[in-house]
């Protein structure tokens, strides 16, 4: 079967042989390797993408489920070559990035949070990121990155 959806604003299609997961399709035939596999069972959040604006673990979502929907991955955030989205910029500036493996998922989860709540309290940020594991940072500068992202988005609007 064939699945058609919008990936980072462009129509894409991909043939499926069976129960491929969105993560496999993104990283495989669609060549979007920015989305990381950290556990393959929805425990770590490294593969977080947005589907119609909501955060999803791409490792749990059958690719067939995104038929006709809009998928945003880390590759879809930067507004232009050489530029970064406010969320990316904030993580770069506020020290939210160390080994970087959790970063694409962290940024996507943060963006989904800020899309829903432009000015979240710290407790809301921590709650929103509870499914995104990081082993390097102890989260302090990640939380500060999300706060900074909220401020940058505020300036931009």
């Amino acid at each position: 079967m064939e699945v058609r959806f919008t990936l980072n604003g462009r129509e894409v299609s991909c043939s499926l042989v069976g129960s491929e997961l969105l993560l496999d399709v993104l990283r495989g035939p669609l060549g979007h390797r920015g989305t990381k596999e950290g556990c393959g069972k929805g425990e770590c959040g490294a593969c977080t993408v947005q589907v119609d604006g909501h955060p999803f673990n791409a490792c749990l979502l059958p690719a067939a489920e995104v038929e006709g929907r809009a998928v945003t991955t880390i590759e879809g955030l930067a507004p232009a070559p050489g530029e970064l989205s406010p969320e990316q910029q904030a993580f770069v500036e506020a020290g939210g990035i160390q080994c970087g493996f959790c970063t694409p998922g962290m940024i996507m989860a943060s963006k989904a949070l800020l899309d829903a709540d432009p000015d979240p309290a710290d407790a809301d940020i921590r709650h929103a990121l509870v499914g995104n594991l990081c082993r390097c940072t102890g989260y302090a500068q990640i939380i500060e990155s999300v706060r900074r992202a909220a401020a940058l988005r505020g300036e931009g609007s």
Binding site: H32, R33, G34, T35, K36, T73, I74, E75, L77, A78, L84, Q88, Q89, F91, V92, I97, G100, T103, P104, I107
Partner: peptide, 10 residues
């Protein structure tokens, strides 16, 4: 940090 942007963009 020099590796930050590459990591932030996947």
């Amino acid at each position: 940090r020099p590796d930050a942007a590459a990591k932030a963009t996947g």
